[in-house]
Structures are given as C-alpha cells and as structure tokens.
Design a binder for these strands. Structure first.
Lengths: 350, 350
DNA sequence: GTGAAAGCGCTAACAG
DNA sequence: CTGTTAGCGCTTTCAC
C-alpha cells in the first residue's frame, strides 16, 4: 500500500507542466518561485493526491537521517515507571521535537548483543540514557558504526557526557544528617553493576562500582567523613527493593538512626518499610533520598532529598546529540544538584 | 562528520576488485556469493573502514522506512509514569524489536497542531497510543499523509483498532460489589474529553464522553443495573486526582459504601484519601479499580481490580501496524479483561 | 524564475 | 557465481 507506486514529485511536475526542480522548490520554499507557478504546483499536488516529499528520499539526498536514537534499559516498563527516566526522556523529547529531529527509541540491555535496530537503524547520533557500564554492547556497536554517542550517567572518553554533581549531592545530604546529630547512618546504594543482586557491602571497603553515579554518590558520603554502619546494594532502583532493604536495615536491634538511599524510589521503599514496622519517621528514623522527584503517593510525607535537573538534563543530552550530528566535538557537561527539604529527616532522638 | 564523505559500498567493491552488486550480496547474504569473494569483500570493508550499508539508502531502495511511529500524549513524563502506558509501550517495543522495525516516539497533544515530526517524519505506519478524541490533530495529519494508523483505546472506522472489553469489566466489578451488599456506589470516571477539569457528573444523565474507554466503562456500570449515587470526572488519570476525588466523595455524611474508579491510579488515590480520613478499607468503604497494574507502594493493600492484558495489547498494536505496512486491511481487535481479586473490597457493614 | 542534469548509496533484475 | 544496468524520490548546483 505504502510501498506501491505512490505519486511522486515527478508526477506533480508533469501535471503542473513544470520541471521537477521547480516543483521541489515550490514545496520546500528554498528558492525563488513565481507565486503563480507555486499555486499551480500545489493545486496539481492536491488534485492528483500527492502526499508531500518522501522523507526517506530527502534524508538520503541530505545525508542526514534526521533521527537520534535513544537507548534505554531493556524493559521500557521499568525505564519509564521510574520518574527519573521518564522525566529525562521527556526533556530529550522536547528538545529533539523543537529541532525537528526524530526520536528512535531503542530498548537494549547492557549485557548480551545489541539489538538489530542499533546495528542497522538509521540515526545521526545516539543518546545512551540510563546506567551503562564501560563494556556496554550498545556503546560498542555504536562505536563500530561510527555513530556519535552521548552518555548519561557515565564517564566516557570517547563520547559526549552529561554528568551530575552526584558527589556534592550526597556529601551535602550526609552533612545535614550529621548536623542533626546522626552518627549511626546506613546507606542503600544504587546497583554497582549489571548483576542485579541484593547484598550487603563492606562499608569500610566497598567494591568498585561499574556505574558512575553509584561510585560518585558513595564517594560523597565518604567526603562528609562518614563511614556507614551498614551498606546495602539493591538489585535495582525500585520501590520494592527499597522495601526489602528497609526491612533488612531497620528490623534489628542496632537499628541505624538514619538511612540515606541513593534514589528516591529506594528511599520511598525504605519509608514504607519503616511504616510497616511501626516506626515513626523522622522521630525513630530519618530517611533521605536522591533525585528530588515527585512521589504523590507518599503523602503526607515528602522525602528529604537532593534534586537533579532532570528535564534540563534531557535538554542538554538532546542538544549535545544535535551538536555531534552537526560535526561538533564531544563535550563533557556537569549539572548541579540542589538540596530539597522534606519531612523525612529530623534531629536524632536519644 | 557523519554526513561527510564516508566510505561506501562502491569503495569496498573497488578495493576488493568486485562489482558493487557482488559487494552488496556479500553483506546482505541475499544471494549466492563464493565464500572466497565474500571473505575478500569483508576484509576490504574492514581495511578501509566501511561501516556497513547506509540504512537510509537501503530504505529508499526498498520503499519502506522500517519505522513505526508511536504517538503518545504530549508530556512523556506523564504518559510513562502511568504504568498502563508504560506497559503497553513495552509490549509495542518488544514486538517491533522482534520484527526489526524502528520505534519513532512522537509526543503530541490531542488539541493544537500535530508536531512537525508527524507531518514530515519517515514512517510506514503509526500507532496512536493513549486516549484520542475523534477530531484528533495527529490522526488527521496521518490520514492526509496516507499513513496507515492503529488506534488504541478508540473506535475508528478509518483505522485499525485494538479495543478492550471495558464494558464487561466494569459490569463484572459492579456486580461483585452488589453481591457484597453495596447499594450506595460512587464512581470516579476517566476524563470525558481533552478538557482536563474535575467536576461532578449527573449520574442519571451523564454527558457523552469523547473518549471510548470512559463511555464503555460507564456503560458497564449501568449494565449491572446500578445508578451511582455520585459520579466525579477527574482532570486526569493520576494518583493526585484520585486523592482529590476521594476527599470529595468520602468526606461527607452520606458517604458511599463503595467507590469504583475507572483506573487503578485513581483508585489508589481514593484509597490514600480514605487512609488520610482515617477510614478503614474495606470495612468502612470498598474501593475498586481498573487495569490490574502492579502498585507496590500501596502495600499492604492490593487493589481489587480488573486486569487488562497490557503487554499483549502492545504486541497486538505492533502486529497490526506491521500488517498495515505489508498492505493488510485494518482490523478491529477486542481484548478480554479478567477480574483481579484484591484486599480493598468487602461486604458492606451496617 | 525555471529547467536540465547529476547524483545521495544502495538493491534487484537480468544477463553472462 | 559475478557484473551490468537501472532506478528508489528527492535536492541542488548550474546554465539559460
């Protein structure tokens, strides 16, 4: 139906009695065409049912696909239910839309082969959203194809990156807890790598995390001079995981007086666990998160957190991708975070 | 960088001392090529840094873009945070990925102009996900371009549709409440149209809803022989709206004994409102939802609801789109729903 | 202002 | 098995 013999610009030109090039100009408006001719061409187009220039042909001629691929975790369901990803993607989509660039959405897990789309899809650049480890198949495939890449949440030499002041964020959060008199502080980290397992981490000597934000946020806590009394790596950044971690941390005699979770979703889970255990927040335990997302279902509580400029991050990523497409060199951007006061932290009770 | 003079198949052919067509066959594997020649071509490609066939050129030649557009509400942030959309999109992405079709994500609000991408983007078909009213700008633009369309959540003659047994769903839910002895049943509907306002609806004589699911789910309640004691249209299907509606319905002397919300997100909001008001669920009020999504943060409660096969819906939509691309005729599919038992409904107390 | 010509990079007949 | 030929539909110099 679509692939069949649709009418082309040549048909229009023939019908209007002009050359193809003139017809082209009449449509694109990119050159001088007599108003009368223009009218005639447009009329012919309408008459014979011409649907406008074929975007693929245009792309071939221009040498640009007009499309930026956005690589997200394999399960969109998860990527999107997470407000952090959703809001970032929203920012990317806005900026790309403003520049009339298409957004090719490519789900791809970190391990295993890159999907066919990534290997063969038409794209001028790619944005790897979400956590990616150095050896990432997606990144590698893109490199081989020579597609310029923008990485979010990662440190890469060979790609543009949009980073975050993770480290300053958790440092600030930790200092605030210290100021409130907390000394027994536990941490729920982000995943260290793609393995997806829940496990206690040695707070004195944690393994090196493959994921940059995990590494940086941990470093921030240490910057504030704190060695956590307990540290737990969740399988994923999900509410359910937060609940599980919360139980492991709070349902014990030597309960910490404060918990820092490296994401709001995890912090929310810890809060729910505290509620289930009959603990009052913040009287019995203080809980801090990271991201500053809006979690209306946590009402009446609002997480004490650190906001990252998610929409802006998306804008920056899209902008970086567009720049690379235009031949720009990969730049490395670092976005600031700002403390967001909430109801879930308070002075330590003795 | 990308648009510059990259190496082409012709370069490879020249280097390998074969014709372009042979080189092409060596890459696509779509014809008989002597293993030796094939090796030689591949070696040349590697040597001169050929990155593989240009997807745009291939598309032009094939007459297929290899891309399906997926139109979602203007704010991705909202579309995705909603588990219903997220899971549907996940299903679409899976199926499209399996067929090696690209997913072009296009945010577009229902009113106002269709975005440039929809007017000029390369696509073989489009899926309109999320609520769409008959006059929809996106749908109209697509029609004018002659792009075949699949509509979710809508009744359309001129497009393939993937529907849901909404009506049977709410009818069943209502009957179950009746069986539990409820007679004072209130309803929180879905939005009736794109206006986004919260308002009470005349239960005896509701306006006609532009959105199909709203219409059908209401009809289902009536099918069960119930006229709601109160009916409230939310501005959107969001937890916050559910909370607001919950307060309006439950914080009054003639409080209903049961509330049916037309989405789980709204039902969750009503449940939170009930908790805030100190009402026990289901002892003081029963609450039923629709969709059957997983809301871990509602623990320990699980909404009594009706599950729709979201992933399957996504699969079906993608499949329908692929069929249309291949010249198939628009079909109209109706997917079943299944009751999902939960903890939020119980016998009426007197 | 308008037209002729030359491809963008690839694939698919069709000969050989 | 391999090469020749002919476009896919459009844009863009460059003459006129």
């Amino acid at each position: 139906v679509r692939g069949a013999n649709r009418t082309t610009l040549a048909d229009v030109a023939a019908d209007a009695g002009v050359s193809v090039s003139t017809a082209s100009l009449a449509f694109s408006g990119a050159g001088p065409v007599a108003p009368a001719t223009r009218e005639r061409v447009l009329a012919s187009a309408a008459r014979i049912g011409y649907r406008g220039p074929n975007p693929v042909a245009r792309s071939l001629r221009r040498g640009q696909a007009g499309v930026i691929a956005v690589v997200v975790g394999d399960r969109l369901q998860r990527s999107f239910t997470d407000p952090v990803s959703a809001q970032t993607l929203d920012g990317i989509a806005q900026e790309l839309g403003d520049r009339e660039l298409g957004l090719l959405l490519v789900p791809s897990d970190t391990f295993g082969d890159a999907p066919a789309l990534l290997r063969h899809g038409a794209m001028d650049a790619a944005i790897i959203a979400g956590l990616s480890a150095p050896g990432d198949a997606a990144l590698q495939t893109l490199r081989e194809r020579g597609v310029p890449v923008v990485c979010l949440e990662a440190t890469r030499r060979d790609a543009a990156t949009i980073g975050l002041e993770d480290r300053a964020g958790t440092a600030e959060l930790t200092r605030r807890l210290l100021a409130l008199g907390h000394s027994r502080i536990a941490v729920v980290t982000l995943p260290f790598g793609p393995q997806r397992r829940r496990r206690f981490i040695d707070p004195e000597d944690p393994p090196r995390a493959a994921y940059t934000p995990t590494r940086n946020r941990w470093a921030g806590v240490r910057d504030a001079g704190v060695v956590p009394v307990l540290a737990l790596e969740p399988a994923m950044s999900l509410v359910e995981e937060g609940v599980a971690c919360g139980h492991l941390l709070l349902d014990r005699a030597d309960r910490p007086t404060a918990v820092i979770a490296f994401s709001d979703l995890l912090a929310a889970g810890v809060l729910l666990a505290a509620r289930e255990l009959g603990l009052r927040v913040p009287q019995d335990v203080s809980i801090a998160g990271f991201d500053g997302v809006d979690l209306p279902w946590l009402a009446p509580d609002v997480l004490t957190s650190v906001s990252q400029p998610l929409t802006e991050k998306g804008h920056a990523a899209a902008q970086a991708a567009a720049d690379l497409t235009a031949g720009g060199t990969p730049r490395h951007l670092l976005l600031p975070v700002t403390p967001r006061p909430g109801t879930t932290t308070g002075p330590v009770r003795r």
